[in-house]
Amino acid sequence: MTGTPLLEATGLTRRYAMRRGLFGRPVEVRAVDGVSLSLEQGRTLGLVGESGCGKSTTGRLVLGLERPDAGSVAFEGRPMPGPGTPAWRALRARMQMVFQDPLGALDRRMTIGAQVAEPLEIHGIGDRDGRVARLLGDVGLRPDQAGRYPHELSGGQRQRAVLARALATDPAVLVCDEPISALDVSIQAQVMNLLVELQARLGTAILFVSHDLRAVRQVSHRVAVMYLGRIVEEGEPDAVLHDPAHPYAQALVSAIPHPGRRQRRILLQGDPPNPADRPSGCAFHPRCPAAVALCAREDPVLKPRPGDGRHVACHVAQGDAPAPSDGRSAARRGGPDRPAEAMRAA
């Protein structure tokens, strides 16, 4: 990882007003609460976390599709123009989004070819026919499929079409919001391989949003774990996904079945998080198996942990508070046990 990042997001915050029930006054939901991340050329940042933790919102903010309530995004060192402005529109040629639901993201009344050509038309790029044919080839679609309508393709083929459209302008940044979760397993692998391959060839920076940890691991160069609108741990995928430091990340990782390793699944107690009602101190403390008294009072900050320098937001993992006596792995540092092969195979 060298040079300045291609895209740098600092302190992104996005609040939504939500009304609860008939009598309630609008409550503020902090979907994203002070997220900073950077994307580098030719590299992939994986973003994981449970449903509703703000992954998609982060993706939209990073691309400038929505205006953050606080924080900023800089692309190539320049601030992101406001959504809908001509400068913003022109910038779309450089940054693209791959949506979760390929059928919904395609216009069912237009052929695949016409839709892949559309960004070229919008941004006035010439040699459309040639480029469309090449793009379809790149994502592994046959030339004759350009004349098909979305409903005439399989799910995987549609996702490839969406990908071809996103890649049409050779974007420097690609946000993939759960690009594979709608697909079945064999096609998931195809689409992911395709992403890796394209990235190697084009040098695209990718933000890969998913709650499939194995997929994230397969494509990412770095991984960030999100909980309730914040990044709670960040680091190399091997490290974060095999030896998570944050108790929440540990729970996430333990939920993946590992053939070849004795299962020790950490079940989270308590209710799933409600972003409208953020617990005091560490937002994870009501469910955290490693929580100590300090956790309810003080908000842990994301910072490199002493020792291996892993970025983690947890008092116990940071060693600021003693681990509870049951010896759970919360504060274990840099444990050697990494069944990487087993995990890859899974």
């Binding site: 529109r89 639901d101 993201a105 559309e118």
Partner: peptide, 25 residues
């Protein structure tokens, strides 16, 4: 969620989004 948001984020102008995608649909 759908196609209109997708086309908008391709950089299309509102005229294009409504005229070529939403209205025909």
């Amino acid at each position: 969620q759908g196609y209109a948001a997708a086309v908008r984020q391709l950089g299309a102008s509102p005229w294009r989004v409504y005229g070529r995608h939403v209205l025909p649909n």
